[in-house]
Structure formats: structure tokens, C-alpha cells
Design a protein around this nucleic acid. Structure first.
Length: 576
RNA sequence: GCCCCAGUAGCUCAGUAGGAUAGAGCGACGGUUUCCUAAACCGUAGGUCACAGGUUCAAGUCCUGUCUGGGGUACCA
């Protein structure tokens, strides 16, 4: 527990002593970085307390500043209107923080915030009729990062992928292949499996515009599939296996991992059973077309088909089944769906249906809706082939990064060059996506969006590489020798205060399901360190004790950056 | 039509339970390298936080309306 938490606890006790009417849960006390360094390191506003006591905040500030007996590490208390700011004993602040981080290492920032929270996180959830594009990248990155954040905050997380491997859309690529495939395969064409299949999906959509009969044929094919027709099933298995091979490559490169993979083909029947049971219990009804429909107009959601007239299931049918399966198979108290905002309505309907059907866990389901990714020419559409392909994008970024590495580090070559270029390219992509608030739409312009300078992943990586370089050269200055007495200039203090904030940032990022907070925090930390690095010499400071302290400070910055980037799924290189 | 979401600097975005003087990066202009990684650092210009009301001691943040953009409203997922 770092000094900020300790001091917060101390303040709470003191405030309760002074105002005995205030109870534990009555108020928050959140120490924040003071805006003006001259007037405090950390501080808080007395609005909450004032409201509770129905008094003027300024009077509270006044009273508290006089009545609290402050611990010795508080050098000065500064009142500013309704705010109470504190200036810490610098030496104490620095030593506590830096030595604490050096001791904890990558464990720094772990918390018990999430104790008892058992979360199932569904993300990725691709369809097996097309390769993944930039929208899927955003989904995968959010899922991975949020899982890391929640685990860091003390939650237990199960990561699952629900693969949409069946349905009318899958039959479209199957039919196209059956009609025009000419026994081509990914192997004999040298194409990545998911791309191979995706081409047939696009081909179908094109030809279906000219030939209406194709739609009928697809419907027949789906029916056959659900009846278990041998030939259809075989084609389906064959084509899906191609897609999975392709997906696995993409996942591996992106760093996406799952504890469990569900297939819609394995769960849609359960969904059907539940719907039919609902029909028996009069939760829904059969209309004149034979469709099973639920009326949610009371909730403003209209009427919704749950099962087709021909008995085949649709999207929501399988989602109903899978929702139940998760709670049956895992001991969880929260089920999170990371799915794009275009499906907001679908999830409103789904959760409402689950409630109506009487599942007590329905309220533990949560749709984490994230914004769409747009290209300059509009929305990406797989069926029309107007997308930014995930693999191509990663290749492109790697290629760009390679050029940058070559420019700067001539001695990096061969396999090492490959690795570093990949790491830097991915970092640019991941950071670009994650620094944007999840719920916001992204306007993606490949030329303008991705860069290696400024507020980017590589900028933070670069900061880490600088620290690593210093540490390699620091020689005799080990942790044990660290002497903090000479530290205390403005740049050093700024870094330390930032480092102190890391645990809070992690919790608020996790709590709000918002990795962009962490991303922006890391930028801030890197900026402060680069400013310090520019203004002050670490190894050539001319004073052994000073150098010792600065090396230790640098090391702690390296630890926090590395751990922060890890949570974002980004590797922090030692060199670049 | 109805429902949902968004609108902050030329562009891309932050802005943490309503709280301290609205912040970055890119782009523009100007500067910094015999010295630990210049993917860096510093400075200048650029804002009626879409608009109009309202609530509040306090509004970019909450409420109402308008405008603009996006998504949804399918036997697609």
C-alpha cells in the first residue's frame, strides 16, 4: 500500500474523529494530484463532507486544517477555497515511493478491489465466413486488456470466445464454394484459410444480387445443415477448419488468448429448447407464419422473433442458449459481452428475454458496447469487401516500423530486426485503438492515424528503451545502494507523484472498463520522464549519491511502464 | 416515423462521481544535439466545449428542446 492510500486512511480517521456524525460509507475521500505544484502535491475538495454536514465547504477546510494533527511527513497544509492541499516531505515521498516500487516490481499496482468478483468475459466472437478486420482488432484488444486490468485489480476472469460457426451467413460462403470452388483449397492456392473462405462470401453476395434463386438455395442448405445432412456437414467442417487455421495465426500475432471456446453450433439447440419451453409457459407465442415471437413492446422493444417458421434458429436463439450455458459451467457472478454498439438493441432484447424466462442471473449479464470503426469512405462491410484487413494492417505497420528501426539502429538486423519491428508496429496499432474511449466511434484514416511519434505506443516504448539503456550502463548503482537524499527537483517530484497514482489509475480503468485511462496515464508518465531525462543527467550528474537516486527513480519508471504496457498487451523492448 | 449513441483547437483524441486557470498529439511557425537513445525536449499561434434554455454555490460534465452525424428498428449476425 503506497503512501497515498496510507495518508487517505489517516485522513479518514481524523475526519471521523473531528466530525463523529460521519460514518464510514458516508463519504469518499479521494486524494488527487494538485493542479499547481507550488500549492500542493496532493489534495482534496471538501464538498462531500460539506454536503453531509450541510455546511459551507470553506468552513470545513478551515476547521480541518486546524483540527487535524498531521503526520510528520506532511510538511505544509495549504487551504485554497474549498480545497485542502498538502505538501509532502519530499525526501520521504520519494524514498517511500521508489523503494516501494523497486521492492514490489511488476506486482506494484495490484489491488483487492475486485475480490470476490468472478467475471466471464466474452470477446472476439468472429463469424467463420470471413477474415477479421479492424473492428475485430478493436474487439480483441479491448477483451484482452480489460481481462488484464480486471485480473490486476483482483478479479477472477474467464476469457471465452463464442465462435459464430453456423447460420445463414456461413451457408453463403459454403454455397458459393460448392458452386464455384472448383476444388481449390487454401493449400493449393497458398491463401490464408480465413481469407480464402471470405472471398467466397463476397462472391456470393455479388452473384446473389443478380440471381434471386441463390437466396432460396442458401435457405435450403441451412435447413439441410440443421437436419444433419452428411454432405453439407462435411463441407461445413472442412471450410471452418480452414478458417480456424487462419484465425489462430491472427490471434497469436495479436496476443489474444482464451480459456474456453464455445461454438454456436454446439449451443443453438439448447437455445431452441429454452424458447420452446417458453412457448409452453406462454412467455411467447406462435404467429400465423409459424414463427415463435415474444412481445416486448411493453419495454419499448417491440415484437421479436425467437425462432424461424421453418424451425431453424437465428442469432438470438443461440445467444439464449449460450447465456445459460455459461452460468451452468462456470461459477461466475458477472457475464460480460464485448460486442460492437450496432448490437445494442440485440442485447437489450436478449437480456429482457432472459429476465422474462425467469433466469435469476439475467441481471448479471452486461453488454460492454464499443464504438464502430469507420474508414474515410464510411462503414466497413465484410460482405462488400470494403474493410481494413487485420493481417494486412499488422504487416503494413511492421513494414513501416522496420524502416524506422533501420534509420536509427544500424546494428539491429536479422531476426532481431524482425522481432523489434513487429513489436513496435503492433504497439502503434494497439495503442492507437486503446487510447480512445471504448464507447467512442473511431474514424480511421490509415495514413494519418498511425504514427510512431507523439502520443503513441512507440513513444512509450522508447521511454522504456531509454531507461533500459541507462540501467545497462549504470554498473555499480544497484537497488541496495540507492540513496535518495539528493533527489528533489521539480522534474523528479513530478515523476514520483505520477508513479504514486498508478494503482488508482488501474482501479479506475478496471472499474469503468476503460483502458484509455491507463493508456493516457502512461503517456503522461513517459512525458514526465522524458522531460526529466532531457533536463538532467542521470549517469553523469557529477555526484554519486545523486546518480544513485536517479538510477533508482529511472528503474521504477521502467517497471511501471513495462507493467502498464503489459496490461495493454504491448511489449516493452529493452532496445529500439 | 420510432429507439439508442455522439458533437471539445484545422485534424485525431483526453478531460476520471458536477468542482481548482478546458489539456495532449498531429499539422503550421520558430528553437535545442562535441554530453546517458533527437521515436526526444522547449516555445508561438489555434477554443463562445454544436446551438438555445434550465437545475446548482459551481456545468464540457446533469435535465429539456433544436441542429448535425452515426447506429438500430430483418426469418443478417
Amino acid at each position: 500500500m503506497n503512501i497515498i492510500y496510507k495518508f487517505e486512511d489517516y485522513l479518514k480517521k481524523e475526519i471521523k474523529r473531528i466530525y463523529p456524525d460521519i460514518r464510514d460509507d458516508d463519504f469518499f475521500l479521494n486524494l488527487e494530484l494538485s493542479p499547481d505544484t507550488e500549492e500542493g502535491d496532493f489534495g482534496f475538495g471538501c464538498f462531500g463532507i460539506a454536503k453531509l454536514l450541510k455546511k459551507n465547504p470553506q468552513d470545513i477546510t478551515e476547521n480541518l486544517s486546524e483540527s487535524i494533527s498531521f503526520p510528520p511527513y506532511i510538511e505544509k497544509v495549504i487551504k485554497r477555497g474549498p480545497y485542502l492541499n498538502f505538501i509532502f516531505d519530499k525526501r520521504f515521498l520519494i524514498e517511500e515511493t521508489v523503494s516501494g516500487i523497486l521492492k514490489e516490481g511488476s506486482l506494484y499496482g495490484e489491488s483487492k478491489w475486485g475480490e470476490g468478483k468472478r467475471i466471464l468475459m466474452e470477446y472476439s466472437s468472429p463469424n467463420t465466413n470471413k477474415p477479421q478486420h479492424l473492428g475485430h482488432i478493436r474487439n480483441n484488444l479491448l477483451g484482452m486488456t480489460l481481462s488484464n486490468l480486471l485480473e490486476k485489480a483482483g478479479c477472477k476472469v474467464v476469457k471465452i470466445n463464442l465462435i459464430n460457426d453456423r447460420g445463414i451467413h456461413i451457408c453463403k460462403s459454403m454455397l458459393a464454394y460448392k458452386l464455384w470452388g472448383n476444388s481449390k483449397t487454401p493449400e493449393n492456392t497458398g491463401k490464408k484459410g480465413d481469407n480464402f473462405v471470405g472471398d467466397y462470401y463476397v462472391m456470393f453476395e455479388k452473384k446473389a444480387k443478380e440471381d434471386e434463386k441463390l437466396i432460396v438455395q442458401v435457405q435450403e442448405m441451412l435447413k439441410k445443415w440443421e437436419e444433419g445432412d452428411k454432405e453439407t456437414i462435411e463441407l461445413w467442417k472442412r471450410m471452418n477448419s480452414w478458417v480456424y487455421e487462419g484465425f489462430n495465426e491472427t490471434y497469436k500475432r495479436l496476443g489474444a488468448e482464451f480459456d474456453k471456446i464455445y461454438y454456436e453450433s454446439e449451443t443453438y439447440k439448447l437455445g431452441k429448447e429454452i424458447v420452446l419451453k417458453g412457448l409452453e409457459d406462454s412467455m411467447c407465442y406462435k404467429n400465423d407464419k409459424g414463427e415463435i415471437v415474444i412481445d416486448l413492446s411493453e419495454k419499448g422493444l417491440g415484437e421479436k422473433v425467437l425462432l424461424r417458421g421453418d424451425g431453424t434458429s437465428i442469432y438470438i436463439t443461440q445467444d439464449i442458449g449460450n447465456a445459460k450455458l455459461r452460468f451452468d459451467e462456470y461459477d461466475i457472478n458477472s457475464s460480460i459481452y464485448i460486442v460492437a454498439s450496432e448490437q445494442n438493441y440485440h442485447f437489450q432484447v436478449l437480456f429482457e428475454v432472459l429476465r422474462r424466462f425467469g433466469f435469476e442471473w439475467a441481471d448479471q449479464c452486461y453488454h460492454l458496447s464499443y464504438g464502430m470503426v469507420y474508414l474515410p469512405e464510411g462503414k466497413m462491410k465484410s460482405r462488400e469487401g470494403t474493410v481494413v484487413d487485420a493481417d494486412n494492417l499488422m504487416d503494413e505497420l511492421k513494414f513501416m516500423a522496420e524502416a524506422e528501426v533501420k534509420k536509427r539502429a544500424r546494428d539491429i538486423e536479422g531476426e532481431q530486426l524482425e522481432n523489434i519491428s513487429e513489436i513496435i508496429g503492433l504497439s502503434a496499432l494497439k495503442f492507437y485503438v486503446l487510447k480512445i474511449h471504448p464507447s467512442k466511434d473511431i474514424n480511421f484514416n490509415p495514413v494519418e492515424s498511425l504514427s510512431f511519434e507523439g502520443d503513441t505506443g512507440p513513444y512509450i516504448q522508447y521511454t522504456h528503451a531509454r531507461v533500459s539503456s541507462l540501467l545497462r550502463k549504470s554498473g555499480m548503482y544497484g537497488d541496495d545502494l540507492a540513496i535518495f537524499t539528493k533527489l528533489g527537483n521539480k522534474e523528479e517530484i513530478n515523476i514520483v507523484k505520477n508513479l504514486l497514482n498508478f494503482p488508482k489509475i488501474l482501479i479506475s480503468s478496471a472499474e469503468n472498463y476503460n483502458p484509455s485511462r491507463l493508456a493516457n496515464y502512461l503517456l503522461e508518465l513517459a512525458k514526465r520522464y522524458n522531460k526529466f531525462y532531457h533536463d538532467h543527467s542521470v549517469l553523469n550528474s557529477g555526484d554519486e549519491e545523486l546518480t544513485s537516486g536517479r538510477v533508482a527513480l529511472s528503474k521504477s519508471v521502467g517497471i511501471v511502464i513495462k507493467e502498464g504496457l503489459r496490461i495493454l498487451g504491448i511489449v516493452a523492448p529493452e532496445r529500439m
